[in-house]
Amino acid sequence: MQELIPPNFKLSQFESYDGTSDPVDHLEAFRTMMLLHGAPDTILCRAFPSTLKGAARNWYSTLKSGTIFSFDQMSHQFVAHFVSSRCPRKGSEFLMNIRQREGESIRAYINRFNVAVLEVWNLDQSVAMAALKGGLQKNDLLFSLEKKYPRDFADLLARAEGYVRAEEAFKMKDEETARERQAGDSSKPAVGKRSREAQPRSRSPPGHKRAHTLPRVRRQRSLNHGVRRGSPPGRFCNYAPLNASKTQVPMEVREQLPRPERMRTHLGKRNLNKFCLYHHDHGHDMEECIQL
């Protein structure tokens, strides 16, 4: 037997089977490995027992001499004896129950969905796409999939990856903004104290009264000051038309986008069914985002 097996192949490196896991998986892995090295049927029958241990080894020792004539016959008896250890395969309807949880990121949802896909037997791609899309919450990814349905499951995952990166980038920006705001709030009292200490005192001698400004001059100064401070910035009336939706454009230029201002609308007055990936907050979607 050793002369027919390549010298660089060692059965000791093959994972042993003790009868507690799926026998079909072990059998197919062994068959594939041996056929890859060109081992004939007789070598498969002789080498297979060396991959067994525990209860599986005890089962092999009960086989009577002269009763096994091919590896297929041994495989059939092996699977029939350990059939109770097989993991039950789940149907496609199992994927329909997977939903994106409240507050769960798109990446975490897709990773959880892909793990469940591995447990489904003979899965159809159209069923997988419908199940993944049906489990999404109301976000820009769902809007994109409804607007243009993907070609296949691989195309869906590739498009979802773009939204995953955008979601993570906005989250990092939000965390950075929160850290800067927290650092700024902690330094405000010290800055205010230094500014008051650095403020120059009046050099007027004691008992000297400062000259009063005429009322008309004061009113004129206040009016001019109000125009400068309160005048709203000008806005354009006409904009160049975009060649893509407001949802797709930021994905292409997300590295050049400025940091969004914090939404000022009270949370109770916002539409919680809409989510803006630019602000990373509820209230509107990217198609309605005024800042974009």
Rank of each mutant, 00 (worst) to 15 (best):
Q13T: 02
F14Y: 01
Y17S: 06
Y17I: 07
G19M: 09
G19V: 03
T20H: 13
T20S: 15
T20V: 10
S21I: 08
D22P: 02
D22A: 09
D22G: 01
D22Q: 04
P23E: 09
P23K: 10
V24Y: 04
V24F: 01
D25P: 04
D25M: 02
D25V: 08
H26S: 00
H26C: 01
E28H: 09
E28P: 04
E28Y: 13
A29M: 05
F30L: 05
F30R: 00
M33K: 14
M33R: 06
M33F: 12
M34C: 11
L35W: 07
L35D: 04
L36M: 09
L36F: 15
H37K: 11
H37I: 05
H37L: 08
A39V: 02
A39L: 02
P40A: 07
P40Q: 01
P40G: 14
D41I: 07
T42Q: 08
I43M: 01
I43T: 06
I43W: 01
L44C: 07
L44Y: 03
C45L: 13
R46D: 11
R46L: 05
R46A: 15
R46C: 11
F48E: 02
P49S: 05
P49A: 04
S50K: 03
S50Q: 12
T51E: 03
L52D: 01
K53F: 09
A55K: 01
A55D: 01
A55G: 07
A55W: 12
A55R: 07
A56V: 12
R57A: 15
N58F: 05
N58M: 15
N58D: 14
W59F: 03
W59L: 05
W59H: 06
Y60T: 06
Y60I: 00
S61C: 01
T62S: 02
T62R: 09
L63N: 12
L63C: 05
K64F: 09
S65M: 14
S65T: 06
S65F: 09
G66V: 02
T67N: 05
T67Q: 11
I68Q: 02
F69I: 13
F71V: 00
F71K: 10
D72S: 11
D72K: 06
D72I: 02
S75F: 00
H76R: 08
H76M: 04
Q77Y: 13
Q77N: 15
Q77D: 15
F78H: 08
F78V: 06
V79S: 04
A80Y: 01
H81M: 15
F82P: 03
F82Y: 08
V83I: 15
V83Y: 13
S84W: 03
S85M: 07
S85I: 01
S85F: 09
R86V: 06
R86I: 10
C87M: 12
P88Q: 06
P88H: 14
K90F: 05
G91A: 14
S92H: 12
S92N: 12
S92D: 06
E93R: 10
E93W: 12
M96L: 14
M96Y: 15
N97V: 10
I98C: 13
R99L: 05
Q100D: 13
R101D: 03
E102Y: 04
G103R: 13
E104N: 11
E104C: 13
S105C: 08
A108T: 15
Y109N: 02
Y109A: 11
Y109C: 14
Y109G: 02
I110Y: 09
I110H: 09
F113A: 11
N114F: 07
N114C: 14
V115M: 15
